[in-house]
Amino acid sequence: MKTVITLARAAVTEHVRRKLVLFFVGMALLAGLGLVYVSLNQDLSANLIGATVGLATVLSLTLLQGMATLAAVAVSMNNIGRPFSDGEAMLMLARPVARWQYALGRLLASMALVVGLCFLLAALLQGVNLIENRDLGWQLWGHWATQAFNLMLLVSITTLMSALVKNPVLAAFVGFFVYTSSNTISTLYLYVTTGRVGGAFGAVVTALWYLTPKRLISPLALDQIQQSGDLVGASSMMLIQSNGLRIAWAVSYLVATVLLTFALVQRKEL
């Protein structure tokens, strides 16, 4: 474990010094200031969404969530492919370091940064909510906790892609596509389960549904979908009814992705 922590610390230093983390933290703070301005300026809120309160919360769910997603991709796209292709990994793997330890160290560093960013965003939004006199309470923290888990899943998928392809930009795009495809596949699978889609296409969709990541559902997001009457959205999210089963599935997917990454890294040549 000492080796993994040493490698993870080095990877965190890499991201911090490459100013990637500082960029996203800076953007978060900037966005936070914007949200504070919006929440204090009630006329602007009224003009934009026809409501005097809640605009900051609405914006937060899209703007900051999107930014956290970008951050997760950015800190994981270089995890395996680049250090193996440019030879940076060679000297470390010539040490008594197992390849899975190397991969796990870099993976944990990316995950720790993403979880830290989610915590920062949650704290920021708690502040904005207080200014808006709107207390989302546990739902806000629950939202960012599920978001942190989902982004760890995105980190693991992007890292897996970076073990498959040398080009970090391609790894980032494919990782992001696989992660975001899960909502579309879930919606299609809903049509399969309700009998509206069948045959060969239905079988393909079913196979894809089992292969795509299962994300945790934010209490806030589900609440909003249900309030807005988006029955398809809500139903596709609830394809797995039991909370426990949903968590077990999501965790299993995360573990499987990590194990697959280890297997690929084990076979990589330097």
């Binding site: 080796t3 000297l91 040490r95």
Partner: peptide, 23 residues
């Protein structure tokens, strides 16, 4: 190695510290 490559963002001291810890 024939073409050694170290993490660009570390100092020489930090590189040696990293390897010292790994061994």
């Amino acid at each position: 190695p024939e073409s050694p490559r170290f993490p660009d963002y570390l100092s020489g001291r930090e590189v040696l510290k990293l390897h010292g810890r790994l061994i």
